[in-house]
Design a protein around this nucleic acid. Sequence first.
DNA 1: ATTAGCACTCTACTACGGAGAGTGCTAAAA
DNA 2: TTTTAGCACTCTCCGTAGTAGAGTGCTAAT
Lengths: 343, 343
Amino acid sequence: MLMIDERSKKILCAIVENYINLPDPVGSRTVAKGHPLGLSPATIRNIMADLEEMGLLTQPHTSAGRVPTDRGYRLYVDSLLLERGSTDIERIQEIYLNLETLRDNIDILLVETSKAISMVSHYLGIAMSPKPNVTTLNKIELFKYKSDKLAAILFTDEGMIKNKLLSLDSEITQKDLNRIASYLNSEFSGYTLDEIRLKILKEMSREKTMCDRLISRAIRICQEALSFPFGDLFVSGLSEVLELPDFADLQKIKELSRAIEEKHTIIKLLDKLADLDGVQIIIGSENSMDEMKKFSVVVSSCKEDGRPVGVVGIIGPTRMNYLKAISIIDNTAKFITRMLGER
Amino acid sequence: MLMIDERSKKILCAIVENYINLPDPVGSRTVAKGHPLGLSPATIRNIMADLEEMGLLTQPHTSAGRVPTDRGYRLYVDSLLLERGSTDIERIQEIYLNLETLRDNIDILLVETSKAISMVSHYLGIAMSPKPNVTTLNKIELFKYKSDKLAAILFTDEGMIKNKLLSLDSEITQKDLNRIASYLNSEFSGYTLDEIRLKILKEMSREKTMCDRLISRAIRICQEALSFPFGDLFVSGLSEVLELPDFADLQKIKELSRAIEEKHTIIKLLDKLADLDGVQIIIGSENSMDEMKKFSVVVSSCKEDGRPVGVVGIIGPTRMNYLKAISIIDNTAKFITRMLGER
DNA sequence: ATTAGCACTCTACTACGGAGAGTGCTAAAA
DNA sequence: TTTTAGCACTCTCCGTAGTAGAGTGCTAAT
């Protein structure tokens, strides 16, 4: 662990906050003036030199001011989490009101949530629907559609409805479909999709010994119906972040847009964090994915009765207003949880 | 109409093609060398001066080569459409094979189609699902869900399935729901969603005179169920176009990303073109939306029995390889149409 | 009608130099 | 021992100047 006294920490935080407001390297004079610590620029220079030695600050070049490193941001954020205040909640509340009207469609709700986050934060807003391993099947309904097709409608306890068209290999009546559906419901309702997948695999392994043709068919249909991309990721606000001076450079924009389009890397990242409680923060190089090493991520999972129902977050430059970001994400996560909890 | 002789046209096309390959202003020497027209640079200079006077070319500055204007591209494209050849179909076919597997879910199919288009074209790929005015209701199913909610599942003739959760204001049995559903189906099946909306409005105006409580409830449910954002737009390939030198400038990237996020402007644009047959091309300033005046659009609607089932297209710089773009879009539209037609 | 020749124009690139901001170091002060 | 003042030094930023090169328009010859 890093040894650092209170005064140095204050100066580090002052530099970080200064840099967040204005992306120019921060000099000793600026710190001395802006924060009434009763220290002269010279003293502060000494401390800054120490902080640099510790790897918390860097200079873009000799004789520029200092800029926080990722580790510098980390220390700042950690000290922030201990005593964080609430930021402009009013603005957010207003936007939440509009989201209320969308509660009945979780996908659209999440899209709009990601947009809302990007609007208030001016960073990328992200929202992800629950992953199959934690999604519980409420019921399944089956319909004939156009003679040779079958529509499977999946309801989850979390309020998601997913549908999938399946091609039928042989004729079947709606009556049989109803029987299949009620069999599947009695068998699988209340289990998570991952559990169901496991059960299906087991069933299939002894399928040959089973002679009930209908059941074996039911199993097959259910398996196909479950092969669905749960865990959708919605990202909004690219034009928002392009306004930031941090993205003046084309290379960085390219990296970010690649990261956005390669959604599965972000999904993988969020998956890791979905189980944890509270607001999680990943700063620049702490990120394990190469595409994301220049950006910071602030996320929180939305949990209902300890069961995650989604993830919301922010992606932005390492020079992010973490205080604001944390507050927004914390509030949004709680709001979504509350809203979905009322269903 | 513009008067222009065959030789000038050849030179214009030569300049456009040259510029498409390499985004540098084209000089008279280059044209003389690259295209064996048997003319000297000086002659070509004269013709280029004429073309500039006609508004088909411009110079970035006095002593640079020439660059096509939007009107220049237009002439090039028009002469192209008369005698167009087929381009690298093989590559496209290969990608189409993967799309085949997705035919059962139209939304995912369209997402993947837009990705495929961007991959082969290296421009933005766009795909849009049918608009409600041309979407025909096949059937509607209603379910109780968690005691106080109602799930409405809409099937369209085009193979789309949409679902919507509605909150119930008062208790209702599944039996009643079934009766409502079969009433709605007998009444509305086979009509386009827009037609149904009209019918509903009519019904509601005389609702007061009707005493069948169930029917009035059915009408209300149906109305809510139809308030669905059909006509989704999918855009892919931002990181693809960022590699183009045309987007070296930050301002242009911002405009493009704004255009992408403000999907409704693009949707409006595509709506206008959805009714037309064949490949439609809009070049730069021909575009009525401000956000799009710096980009070109190549689109084609996918029609099944004269009824549009979607729109596919490309958005790119005005300096676009129109020949390739046209070929890709034409083929993709035909492929999608054929695939959906087989259902 | 076409071409060769030539002067002209404009950009892109490099080099130079001064202003300004911020540093590190040293020596004095607290 | 810690803090501060002073000062020389370093590096970026920005404007100016000068040059090479590409491409033009015009004129006169073919």
